[in-house]
């Protein structure tokens, strides 16, 4: 079984994207053997009123019976915007989201903003996963001049984990040096319920990453439609026996994701 914990639908403003509708993503999933995908709608990164994007995703998912069995919707929530608590309730109770994604850089608030911490705590209490994406695009070159230049590394997540250590996290498209953490930060991360998806450029040596943080901390992710569909899988499938072998590979393919998603 294979689960992609980092897929998106919707429109990316600054570059034409292929394969960015549920239908197209499903075709990719079928072609490459992906059973389930965690998905949210890119439009919510840019809409001021993000709930419109969650509604679009929900409508798209309702439009085809096949989608129900193959996608886990995540909502995008902006804790600075009016009505977000109501949005969250609707997303959980009417749209069946299993988690949320936050985009503080795009929505222009600090990770340490009280409203952000508040949201993470509420998500924890509701049993929702909280997804943070370290960057959408490489700020060096392909980025558009109107796009953000900020990207995070693992260290930027520590204050949030310290504030809400018992929430469940997805760290997506992880970039920057993943070995940047000091001893105590590393210990904190190990204790946290978190999955790092395999789409990020930081995972240049998957074997080392597993040796440092354990195979229980990673899960397959694509960051589709922005990144290619297979590099995240390649990081898993090319692991050797001495790096965890089939047991580790299976944890990364779906075992860890199933556990955290409760399926």
């Amino acid at each position: 079984m294979l689960i992609d914990i980092n897929a998106s639908t919707g429109h990316w403003p600054f570059q034409q994207m292929q394969n960015s509708s549920c239908n197209e993503i499903l075709a990719r999933m079928d072609r490459y053997g992906v059973d389930l995908s965690v998905v949210s709608n890119l439009n919510g990164i840019f809409y001021k009123n993000v709930q419109a994007a969650n509604e679009e995703l929900h409508e798209e998912l309702m439009s085809d019976r096949r989608f129900k069995d193959r996608f886990f919707p995540f909502a995008i929530i902006n804790p600075q915007y009016a009505g977000w608590r109501q949005d969250l309730d609707i997303c959980v109770n009417k749209m069946g989201v299993r988690g949320i994604r936050l985009y503080p850089v795009y929505h222009d608030y600090e990770l340490s903003d009280p409203s952000c911490i508040d949201l993470v705590k509420i998500a924890r209490d509701m049993g929702l996963i909280v997804g943070f994406t370290f960057r959408m695009f490489d700020p060096r070159g392909p980025r558009h001049w109107m796009d953000t230049t900020i990207q995070w590394n693992l260290g930027d997540m520590i204050p949030v984990i310290q504030e809400v250590p018992d929430a469940t996290y997805f760290f997506l498209n992880v970039v920057g040096n993943i070995f940047v953490l000091n001893e105590s930060e590393r210990a904190l991360l190990k204790k946290t319920t978190v999955l790092i998806d395999t789409s990020g450029a930081s995972l240049g040596n998957m074997g080392n990453a597993i040796a440092t943080y354990g195979a229980g901390k990673f899960a397959f992710g694509t960051h589709t439609p922005i990144l290619d569909y297979l590099t995240g899988l390649l990081r898993i499938e090319s692991l050797r026996e001495n790096e965890g072998g089939e047991a580790a590979r299976d944890q990364l393919r779906s075992g860890n994701a199933r556990k955290i998603l409760g399926i």
Binding site: K68, D69, R70
Partner: peptide
Amino acid sequence: SISGLSGCQRSGAAMPA
């Protein structure tokens, strides 16, 4: 207990190649 995923196992055709 996932609401959205009940029936996942029924639709065998939905499984990817």
